[in-house]
Amino acid sequence: MSVLAENLDWGVGRKTILHDVSISVAPGETLGLVGPNGSGKSSLLRLLAGLKRPRAGLVTINGKSVVQVPRKALSREVAFVQQSAATETSVSVLDVVRLGRTPHRSALSGWSAEDEAAVTEALTRVDMLGHRAQSWQTLSGGERQRVHIARALAQSPRVMFLDEPTNHLDIHHQIEILRMVRDLDLTSVIALHDLNLAAMFCDKIVVMRSGSVFASGTPAEVLTEELLREVFRVTAEVNCITPGAGPHIRFTP
């Protein structure tokens, strides 16, 4: 499914957070959203997922405006993984991943074989099947993050929005999660801080600055030494060592 945002404006009170943002994601594409802190990445993801209404502009997923599709129907196709969501309740890993089936179940319907299969597959994909009976409160930050991703996968979405999904993860699981998201047959938009990971796993990159799109294109087109200096205020060497593998950034002190 394609995701299209046209001329989005959004803010809180008088403060404008996003201004005139347009992006387009083709079906099956993995788009990386990068930018300094406070550049509007998380806000943009929320608008794309229909969790917030833009002041102006339009978000369409597969040609349908997200604010007009009923919530439940939308969440059968669109999953959103927020940054480190927490709870005080003593739920188990399985309870949490089962929540992902909420949009597929009616108020009183039972637990179907399809639900069970989706949950088991999601847990397997994030390497947490062995932890399914464990209490949420005893998980590490990285394990919690993986359970959240499993819950999103259990929604059987066609489009996935992830807000810094690799936070708290060790490097092995950072790469595993991003590879998995890229290889899944779905359209995804991922907010990331690690530019090398973005270059490795994203088909396209959108660079945000102060609530607007600064640049967009393939990693090689976008991640240039000049852009890094201007947007991120760092000096770096950008090399394309292996052709087709995306640029590699080495930050210089």
């Binding site: 439940k72 927490a86 709870t87 108020a107």
Partner: peptide
């Protein structure tokens, strides 16, 4: 009881419940 599933979805907060399709 009719809304029990929706109540479960509030486990991780309002926004999370919304992302799970709860109005």
């Amino acid at each position: 009881i009719y809304l029990a599933r929706a109540l479960d979805a509030f486990t991780f907060g309002d926004e999370d419940a919304a992302a799970l399709g709860v109005p």
